[in-house]
Write a protein that binds this DNA or RNA. Structure first.
Length: 473
RNA sequence: GGCCCGUUCGUCUAGUGGUUAGGACUCAGGGUUUUCAUCUCUGCAACAGGAGUUCGAUUCUCCUACGGGCUACCA
């Protein structure tokens, strides 16, 4: 049978980095074994639904170059891929369970359930539904269904044990007495996650369910449902959680969690994929920098870890810096262009832009950090009083005067020649060290620290260099 | 509270019944660079605890501790 996996987010907002990790592992597994990956939108909660969320998620995956074989954008005989469009399917399937007695209608509503939970909690008992509606007669059920709101619950068998094998955690067992009679169909007619998920996974031919570890405790319910339907169980692969620095489940409260946030802050798609791939999985050797296609080759479920992984922004930054420095310059230019343009900078002179980016990429860990080292090439310089004082002192003036005079009229000087001129300026004026370099660098660049002077002049051009220096003479 | 899962440097992780327990990020120091950055070298730093099995356990088993997840008509 063809391997088929799925990524099934609920459209409640932007794509979460944890979601990206889950999607990526599914994707890599599918690629590795030559299977398929589908995207299914689990929009069964009408209250939490966010407009356009599915489009946003798809858009982010496009930016990351992760593509699905089936999904809302690519319908097939297995669709539709929005669960909200599959209501009749769930209706048909719940009837099968109702008929076999593995599900039953329940008319207990909010207040009674709240009281029940409160009572169980105060008595320190296991919190689960008391099956108040299980033994209603057929007539009672019929009458109530016509006049009252109701849900449909699964009937968990008594006294049995549910055992399943998780690929990462191996044998997991739980007593049925611990399992609640989970609501399968809500009073608004929509299915709950547990029901829709199982029905769809089966109908869509999913062979491997790879998802976050937070689903491990409810997996027995899903296993029971497969048994009720007499369906073949998929393989379960529960991924370790992504964690905040305090080890709690990664959440918005402690920083950015959406992939979009990181993209907007100047992290590259390549970085995000590489970084997230190494959270809960590791390659055979000690290599750390992986392209998506490297990962497709290297990935193996055998090397998925068991314990949660803290999302360490420091290491993310470092990795992004590596990509900034090592990706082809054209790629970095492509990513930087819109950001530079948003500053109102004109990047039309490609040669200059390229040189600026080449300089900036070495000094930055994100696209946005490339702005600062590029200011001197695209924006007006600002000088502090301290800078002006330094530029006006006697030795600075000697340096600037000699240097700019010698430069005047030279158009095609190479960087090596400019370097020689700097040395010559020092010899002739008798100014050495910092006193020699600081005035040049400040007048040209606005900062004492920065790139080599010849490199700087190479980007600026001789004319602009002379203009900038002569402003201070 | 109950159930489930987990535990190697601060963080991501490798690894083995006998290893100087390895790598990466961070941090510290050195080198390269006129400066900054890059690059590079060196260093700091870990097997949660207790029993058991064993000639020998970080590695296998059990217990404890700690951490986390779940405990909704959310996913």
């Amino acid at each position: 049978m063809e391997t088929k996996v799925r990524f099934a987010p609920s459209p409640t907002g932007n794509l979460h980095v944890g979601g990206l990790r889950t999607a990526l592992f599914n994707y890599l597994y599918a690629k590795k074994v030559g299977g398929k990956i589908i995207l299914r939108i689990e929009d069964t909660d009408q209250n939490r639904k966010v407009e356009k969320a599915a489009e946003n998620i798809l858009d982010v995956f496009n930016q990351l170059n992760i593509h699905f074989d089936e999904g809302p954008h690519l319908e097939s005989k297995y669709g539709p891929y929005f669960q909200s469009q599959r209501l009749s399917i769930y209706k048909d399937h719940i009837q099968i369970l109702l008929d076999s007695g593995t599900a039953y209608p329940c008319f207990c509503m909010g207040e009674r359930l709240d009281d029940l939970r409160l009572k169980l909690a105060t008595n320190k008992e296991h919190i689960k539904y008391d099956r108040h509606c299980l033994n209603l007669s057929q007539d009672e059920i019929k009458a109530k269904m016509e006049s009252e709101p109701y849900v449909i619950r699964m009937k968990v068998p008594d006294g049995e044990e549910v055992v399943f094998y998780d690929v990462v955690r191996e044998r997991v067992a739980i007593q049925c007495d611990e399992i609640d009679d989970q609501v399968l169909i809500k009073s608004d007619g929509f299915p709950t996650y547990h029901f829709a998920n199982v029905v769809d996974d089966h109908l869509m031919g999913i062979t491997h369910v790879m998802r976050g570890e937070e689903w491990l405790p409810s997996t027995p319910k899903h296993v029971l449902l497969y048994q009720f339907f007499n369906w073949k169980l998929p393989k379960f692969i529960h991924l370790p959680l992504l964690l905040n620095p305090d080890k709690s489940k990664l959440s918005k409260r402690q920083g950015d969690v959406s992939v979009e946030d990181y993209l907007n802050k100047g992290y590259l798609p390549e970085t995000l994929i590489n970084f997230v791939a190494l959270l809960g999985w590791h390659p055979k050797d000690e290599k750390e920098l992986f392209s998506l296609s490297d990962l497709e080759n290297e990935f193996s479920v055998k090397r998925i870890n068991k314990s949660g992984a803290v999302f360490d922004v420091e290491k993310l930054k470092w990795m992004n810096g590596q990509y900034l420095k090592n990706l082809p310059i054209e790629t970095i230019m492509k990513y930087a262009k819109p950001v530079f343009k948003s500053k109102g900078w004109d990047t039309k002179n490609t040669e200059k832009f390229k040189a600026v980016i080449e300089n900036a990429r070495k000094r930055a860990d994100t696209i946005h950090e490339m702005i600062k080292p590029s200011i001197p090439f695209y924006a007006e310089l600002e000088y502090s009083d301290e800078d002006n004082n330094l530029l006006q002192n006697e030795s600075s003036q000697k340096v600037l005067t000699y240097f700019s005079e010698k430069l005047t009229g030279q158009i095609n000087w190479t960087e090596a020649e400019i370097k020689l001129l700097v040395n010559e300026t020092g010899e002739i004026t008798g100014v050495k060290g910092k006193d020699l370099y600081a005035p040049l660098r400040i007048s040209l660049f606005g900062e004492v620290h920065g790139p080599d002077i010849p490199l700087l002049i190479g980007i600026l051009g001789i004319d602009e260099t002379i203009i900038r220096i002569q402003r201070h003479i």
